[in-house]
Simulated assay, not measured.
Amino acid sequence: MASTLSIYNEHFGLAERPFTLLPDPDFLYWSDSHTRAYAMLEYGMLTHAPITVITGEIGAGKTTLLRHLLRSLPEEFTVGLISNAQGNRGELLHWVLMALGVPTEEGASYVRLFAQFQEFLIEEYASGRRTILIFDEAQNLSTETLEELRMFSNINADKDELIQLVLVGQPELRDLIAQPRLVQFAQRVSAEYHLPAMTAEQVQAYVNHRLAVAGADREIFTPAACECVHQVSGGVPRLVNQICDYAMVYAYTDGARLIDAGIVEQVAADRRMHGNLKMVV
């Protein structure tokens, strides 16, 4: 028996599901804000910025931008990606070395771990490679961890940075960095951008873009439906995806091939009733 999703795709003439919650660079919509955020990431890479910071609300598209960056970086970059790193001073180094593929000895002291880290950076630099550490969900880092990261950024060779740091997180990350204790860290941030929510016009373009990537060759969401999606999602891409995905299921079960504001309003009402989706209205 065919799955609901495959039938829903067939019903709308789509090759794949357009509104999944997984960060997929193939569906990346280049709004003005996402273009600027990505330009800031590239600027940080090209100018050897010691620390680059990108922030945005949950579901704003930060991780998707990171995925696109990782696919686009030249081969001479060595990248370590750390998500939700937590713990004390020594544990951070374990996270970092693991992300860089550096084996560590069980029970090794902090001094030994740091020496391994330094040796790795020097070897990469000598080989003509640049090392980048990317921290996703960086708002979960402590002030002590951020201060340790600042010390990492002090490792250099003459005028060249041996390591660059990219921190991506929710708006709380900006508040964390603004603390008086982290003034030296803030001074090392050379590239920074905050991703705002999408406007109503951007939501409509975003919805139509994802549908086109999935194979749509006609209008599926009316302009009024897109306006309603913006109202109930606040312009946050992940919420837009949730609402649109539900709306397509509702339309499929009703036999409708065009999604209007009424269907979106029904989705919003049902989600609020069951508490499964936090709407912005």
Rank of each mutant, 00 (worst) to 15 (best):
P103K: 13
R181F: 08
F27A: 03
V189N: 10
A39L: 10
D136R: 09
L66V: 12
N88P: 01
D24A: 15
A85Q: 06
D24P: 01
A186G: 14
Y38D: 05
S3I: 04
A178S: 14
G59K: 05
R17T: 13
A256T: 02
P25L: 14
S233F: 00
R130Q: 06
I263D: 05
E172R: 06
Y29K: 03
F135M: 09
S190P: 02
S72R: 14
C228V: 03
L70S: 12
A60T: 05
L21Q: 15
G169F: 11
G56Q: 05
L65Y: 06
M40Y: 11
P180I: 12
V213N: 01
D136S: 09
I54Y: 08
L173S: 03
R210K: 03
D136N: 08
I7C: 13
T55P: 11
P18L: 03
R130S: 06
L149E: 07
L141T: 02
S31V: 07
P18W: 04
C228M: 11
I155M: 12
M273C: 04
R181H: 09
A216C: 10
V240K: 02
A224T: 06
A197Y: 10
E144C: 01
E161M: 09
H230I: 04
L41N: 08
G13P: 14
V232S: 04
M1H: 10
Y8N: 12
N241W: 09
E265C: 04
I122K: 10
S33P: 06
T78L: 12
T52L: 15
D260G: 10
R174E: 14
N276Y: 15
A99T: 05
L121N: 02
M1A: 13
Q204I: 02
G87N: 04
P74T: 11
G128H: 07
V207Q: 01
R271D: 04
D160L: 06
R218H: 08
E137N: 03
M248G: 12
A224Y: 00
E144K: 05
P237H: 06
E75D: 11
V111K: 12
P180Q: 09
L28K: 15
M198H: 05
V213W: 03
N241T: 07
A251L: 08
G255I: 02
I122F: 10
T145F: 10
F185R: 02
H11M: 13
R129K: 15
L5Q: 10
Q139C: 03
A126V: 09
L70M: 12
F19W: 12
F19P: 02
S31F: 06
P196H: 05
M248R: 13
E172I: 04
R210P: 02
Y125A: 15
G255D: 01
Q184K: 15
L149H: 07
V168A: 15
Q202A: 09
S3M: 06
V111G: 04
T4W: 15
V236L: 00
G169E: 07
L121S: 05
F135K: 13
E172K: 04
P103G: 09
Q86H: 11
T63S: 15
G255K: 01
N88D: 07
S142T: 03
Q116V: 06
R188P: 02
P25G: 14
V183S: 13
G90Q: 07
A37P: 08
I177M: 00
R67G: 02
I177F: 03
R89C: 00
R150H: 11
V207G: 01
